[in-house]
Amino acid sequence: MFPRSLRLSHRFLSTVNSSTFKADNLRVTLCSPEKRKPKPDDPNTHKFGTLFTDHLLSIRWTLEKGWDDPEIIPFQNFSLHPATKTLHYSQNLFEGLKCYRGDDGKIRLFRPEKNMERMVTSAKRASLATFNPDELLKCLKKFIMVDADWVPSLPNTSLYIRPTFMGIEPTLGVNSADEALLFVIFSPVGAYFGTKIVPVSLLADPAWVRAWPGGAGSNKLASNYGPTLSIQKNAVNKGCHQVLWLFGDDEQLTEAGAMNIFAFLINDKGEKELITPPLEQGVILPGITRDSILTITRDWNQFKVTERKITMDEVIKTLEQGRLLEMFGAGTAAVVSPISRINYQDKDYLIPTMESKDAIAQKLLKTIMDIQYGRIEYKNWTQIVC
């Protein structure tokens, strides 16, 4: 076995640790009845992500022994050494997905295999051990069955799922951790922006950049989010909900807050076109909702659907010419969020997203939620848990 002083590149690390944990070996320790928490009558009355269920899923890894067996245990705090790698060097990644209680009472996951695959990709980028994504999904489903009573049944509510993977070796050397912890917690949630569909406003400030080619902007690493928080405060101070992240000298649109961005417009050829920025530069997270929207709208075959660069100049030009019809963000938390205003260089640009009764954003929101809650079947995108 390699001595502690020898550190491996993330590529070699993932090769050495090709074994994985097995869902068949999952151990379950249930929370005692007297320690179980009251379930909320309506998650919409609580701030998003502040309530947690009675259990968590925990899987430890060490360079010496590989993966331990997964276990479901009562929800509890972790004890971490002050020198833990994740606290000093952000060797930490996470995922975000939801499960839904459908009108038929069944609990469903929406394209969860995509989240598991993306988590493995992020683990490689963070120099953490890899694992079989199918085995994590099996563990996740067993965990959902344990805390199934926490999946809310009110309209537009769901159980938010947060898998996290972090290096926990207690040393200050700037290198890959020899110990790591993968865990999953659940939180019953309502609609991300409240019970009503409220269009969001964005601050577009070219002075700040979320990610750069060659960095880790296309991975769901914790280190991508902390540096955005102060800019988010700037947006709130200017009366905006989120930040529209720009990139490059030509001020390309990349993401809106933690959402992928879409624009629906009439292009120079007079065609209706739905545009979202491409992934090739590695500065945009490949969102599952983003991919779902591209697939659904291409199946509709009602307008051109393009993954291409779009700049602030094009947004302003098409808006002034009356050719910009809609803009919206898309992500797991908010699903589809219409955009009504962009503040750019201290000027407000009003986007007419909500003015049409046939808005693409509204139609997509209904379609995706109908799939998620089992009202319609589409491409086997949902998996029934119980």
Rank of each mutant, 00 (worst) to 15 (best):
D24L: 12
K114F: 12
E307W: 03
P352E: 05
L319V: 01
P206S: 13
C139E: 04
T297E: 05
G190D: 03
L26I: 13
K98E: 02
I266G: 02
P188A: 11
S58M: 10
V198M: 05
H241M: 04
W61L: 05
K272E: 15
P206Q: 11
T164L: 14
I360H: 06
Q252K: 15
H10W: 10
I288D: 01
F78G: 06
I288S: 02
E314N: 04
G66M: 12
P3H: 13
R298E: 13
T318W: 11
N267K: 09
S9T: 15
Q76V: 04
P152N: 08
F21T: 00
L8N: 04
N132Y: 09
R27D: 11
T171L: 11
T295S: 14
T228D: 01
F110G: 02
A330N: 07
P3I: 09
S19N: 14
P74H: 11
R108H: 06
P170Q: 01
L140D: 05
C386D: 15
A359M: 04
Q281W: 06
R7T: 14
V335I: 15
L202D: 02
S153F: 07
L285T: 06
N175V: 12
Y344C: 08
V315A: 08
R111M: 07
I284Q: 05
V335F: 05
A333E: 00
Q252S: 12
I231M: 05
I197C: 08
A361M: 06
K363V: 09
L253M: 14
S187H: 10
L172Y: 05
V336I: 15
